[in-house]
């Protein structure tokens, strides 16, 4: 993210959602969502399972399509046009719960794939960028291994590096630590905290409340497809307003 692009966009928000509605068949998953994410903002989305939080962030890079409302990412409004969707996706990195690394490619090739085919970078340059980011997530020594030979935590760090290689302006995290063994959660969270400190715009669906307290500018609580409460972490955790939020917090923090 260069300084020039940041200033030229001025104060346009990174992500803007207005009146977003989505249905799976008859099931109303997202109901009248309005959400604005400013540049450099770190947002944590939480809520019970089935509340639509994953669906919400998957709409931002059009892994899910919505039926009503408007999404504007980095000044580009989302349409059904494939070329435009692909253009938006180039600015949006995503990390999945199940890593979704490409098992038939080495770690390095995983990181180079879209650089070579989407950004059309020469091989050597792509590898240099890939190694830089693998270095940053501290896994450069495994660059020539295949994903199947790595632990879950290592795979997730590779997945973060792979997304960063495209130099996205915003990063989406869809429950990045939920599929990990407890002892590996920290290594992934450390990378995410580091990324937040560097000023990356981030939207994380997670149950890691410690992470939310450390880095989030805002915490969003969702239930039944709607945003119930939105607040800075101190307010959210110490003085939740909604009964639903209180119940949710007591359930995940209570034990």
């Amino acid at each position: 993210m260069s300084q020039a692009t940041a200033t030229s966009h001025g104060e346009t928000p990174m992500i803007e959602m207005k009146g977003l509605n989505k249905w799976y068949g008859d099931f109303h998953v997202l109901r009248d969502i309005d959400l604005t994410v400013k540049r450099g903002e770190r947002i944590v989305v939480c809520g019970p399972s089935g509340s639509g939080k994953s669906t919400l962030i998957r709409c931002i890079n059009h892994l899910e399509s919505h039926q009503q409302g408007e999404i504007v990412v980095n000044g580009m409004s989302m349409t059904q046009d494939v070329k435009r969707i692909e253009q938006i996706r180039r600015n949006v990195g995503m990390v999945f719960q199940h890593f979704n690394l490409f098992p038939h490619l080495s770690v390095l090739e995983n990181c180079c794939l879209s650089q070579t085919w989407v950004q059309k970078k020469p091989r050597a340059e792509a590898e240099k960028t890939a190694m830089e980011y693998l270095e940053r997530v501290q896994i450069a020594d495994q660059a020539y291994k295949y994903p199947g030979q790595l632990s879950g935590g290592q795979q997730q760090r590779v997945a973060i590096a792979r997304a960063l290689c495209m130099r996205p302006e915003v990063m989406l995290f869809d429950e990045p630590t939920s599929a990990l063994d407890p002892e590996m959660i920290k290594e992934v969270l450390d990378v995410m905290i580091e990324l937040a400190r560097e000023g990356m715009t981030m939207l994380c669906v997670t149950h890691e409340m410690g992470f939310a307290k450390t880095v989030a500018d805002r915490v969003i609580f969702m239930d039944q497809g709607q945003i119930i409460e939105e607040a800075p972490p101190e307010t959210f955790f110490n003085n939740p307003r909604s009964e639903r939020t209180k119940l949710f917090l007591s359930q995940i923090l209570g034990h």
């Binding site: 890079n61 892994l63 996706r89 949006v92 979704n100 794939l113 879209s114 989407v118």
Partner: peptide, 10 residues
């Protein structure tokens, strides 16, 4: 999906 998220076409 991972391919889509990276901006790769069909």
């Amino acid at each position: 999906e991972a391919g889509k998220a990276l901006g790769l076409g069909y």
